[in-house]
């Protein structure tokens, strides 16, 4: 969202009201040049916690985007090794000492060690797990935001029967517990596509759909509320009077004014979806091909492994906690910056 299209000012020239100020004066330029978003950004940059969180988030994004090259750099890969080469079948299936901790010294071959029982390289799985996590969360956020914004816009602006029906759907979806819905849908979708070669991709795609399907209502509500307030504003009234088509009013006039609520809902959704993706994988109904932090946690959270090899659990767990925490804190900071009245 570029800052200069945001804000009610953009409609100034369309208004019949007389201009009290010379738009080219130095003072006016300074005000006009600082849209609410830019002001918020300025506030954000001064917030130390926000900056730290942004750096952490950036780190995870880099890990996700460059998972391949980074693994290559360390000489590790997702490739399945023969289990007996790396783990000891007669020692509780723990990694052999030469594979690094817990029974051996650190080795560059496997900087984060290998998984018990399978011998998979932890670093590679961690990096690709990070990619899956962010990819799914970001896609679901995108889909859910678009759905929520469209529904919210339509419901708020059109009002009447459309609003009633759409609000009913929002309420209905809010009544369906997300987890149960995901539980019901996952096997159905998976069974449908099991034979396809691109099954692993389809599974992720359907995961995005399930997450988005139960994540759009908050945005829709938020947007609807904003639109209800906005549509009584002069610039919208004016556009209507001028006979602007509804779609143009919605997307050219209203949408730019919704930047703040949209950013707020994205900031809420992103960490929630990261957590949900891993949570579903932990329950065994999300990603099932093993490359997910949630799945690693599921395998690591047994008494024996936790006692003898706790870092196997901590690696993915810290990944999720750090990512979700910094996304949440960053979101909080963004919300504060957008609305300085809120108190923390």
């Amino acid at each position: 969202m570029s800052a200069d299209t945001a804000g009610p000012e953009t409609l100034g020239s369309l208004s019949d009201e007389p201009q009290h100020q010379d738009p080219n004066s130095q003072q006016a330029k300074e005000i006009a040049g600082k849209s609410p978003l830019r002001i918020a950004l300025g506030r954000l940059a001064r917030d130390k916690i926000a900056v730290v969180c942004a750096v952490v988030v950036l780190f995870f994004i880099i890990c996700a985007v460059f998972a391949g090259p980074i693994s290559h750099l360390f000489g590790v890969s997702l490739e399945t090794p023969l289990a007996s080469e790396r783990v000891d079948g007669l020692n509780n299936n723990m990694p052999k000492p030469e594979m690094g901790p817990p029974f051996g010294p650190f080795t560059w071959e496997h900087p984060m060690g290998v998984a018990p029982r399978t011998g998979n390289d932890n670093l590679a799985y961690w990096l690709y797990g990070c990619r899956i996590s962010l990819l799914i969360a970001a896609s679901a956020t995108l889909v859910a935001s678009v759905t929520g914004v469209v529904v919210g816009l339509l419901a708020g602006f059109l009002g009447g029967a459309v609003d009633k029906i759409l609000s009913f759907f929002v309420d209905t979806f809010l009544t369906i517990p997300f987890l149960l819905a995901a539980l019901t849908l996952a096997p159905i979708l998976n069974e449908r596509f099991a034979l396809y070669d691109s099954y692993a991709t389809i599974q992720k795609f359907s995961l995005v759909v399930v997450l988005a399907l139960f994540g759009w209502m908050g945005t829709a509500r938020l947007i609807r509320g904003e639109v209800l307030a906005l549509r009584e504003r002069e610039f919208v009234q004016a556009a209507r009077v001028m006979g602007m088509p509804t779609s143009r009013i919605l997307f050219k006039e209203l949408l730019p004014n919704l930047a703040a609520p949209i950013i707020i809902s994205v900031s809420l959704m992103l960490p929630a979806f990261v957590a949900a993706e891993a949570g579903l994988a932990y329950l065994g109904i999300g990603v099932t091909d093993g490359v997910s932090w949630g799945q690693t946690i599921l395998q690591a959270a047994t008494p024996t492994y936790f006692r003898e090899y706790p870092q196997y659990l901590w690696q993915p767990l810290l990944g999720i906690v750090a990512l979700v925490l910094s996304l949440n804190l960053l979101g909080d900071a963004i919300r504060d910056a957008l609305d300085p009245k809120t108190r923390r």
């Binding site: 998976n190 091909d289 093993g290």
Partner: peptide, 27 residues
């Protein structure tokens, strides 16, 4: 996950031995 891990091993062994494996996941 155990079944999945076992299948990975089978696939690994087979593909090292001149086979090409398509493993269909079922629910």
């Amino acid at each position: 996950p155990l079944a999945k891990a076992a299948q990975d091993q089978i696939t690994k062994g087979f593909e090292a031995s001149g086979f090409k494996v398509k493993a269909v996941p079922v629910q």
